[in-house]
């Protein structure tokens, strides 16, 4: 069930897990759209020559994944702040999972705070994020 108003949200609630598309084709699509072209994002061999483990998912793309996850969970959400900390590289063509949990609710203001983590298949956190989200205070 998607969230429509702040009253649909429970403190401590887990958001549905979101598995972002980190395939090379999708990362190339992103870099073209965002104007962040560069071989370290779009070419595994070129990235390895720079000493990286493989092509990198741009940090701004990981940030975009976090927003998409929130919008899928709560379509009327208006994200007012999102902060991301890059702890380790997110590598193209590897599997990642984004988890989120509600850490604060102000029902009167319609504001919810969410902690978000991007982890790999080993359970290692690569990106940590927090977001403040405004939701309608009552159904329309």
């Amino acid at each position: 069930m998607t969230v429509q108003t702040v009253r649909d949200v429970e403190f401590g609630e887990d958001l549905p897990v979101f598995d972002p598309d980190t395939t090379l084709d999708n990362v190339i699509r992103f870099t073209e759209a965002a104007g962040w072209r560069g071989p370290r994002f779009t070419d595994h061999e070129a990235a390895r020559k720079e000493g990286l483990p493989g092509a990198l998912v741009p940090g701004i793309m990981s940030q975009g994944f976090l927003c998409a996850m929130i919008h899928r969970w709560a379509p009327p959400a208006r994200i007012v702040e999102v902060d991301t900390i890059f702890r380790a590289p997110v590598i193209v063509d590897q599997a990642y999972h984004i988890n989120g949990v509600v850490t604060d609710i102000d029902e009167d203001a319609g504001r919810v705070e969410v902690d978000l983590t991007v982890t790999n298949d080993k359970g290692e956190t690569r990106v940590f994020g927090t977001a403040k989200v405004d939701l309608p205070t009552a159904g329309t």
């Binding site: 999708n26 699509r29 073209e32 793309m61 975009g64 994944f65 927003c67 998409a68 919008h71």
Partner: peptide, 11 residues
Amino acid sequence: AEYAKACGEVA
């Protein structure tokens, strides 16, 4: 729009 789709937005 391409940016949004690549990030996984659906709305």
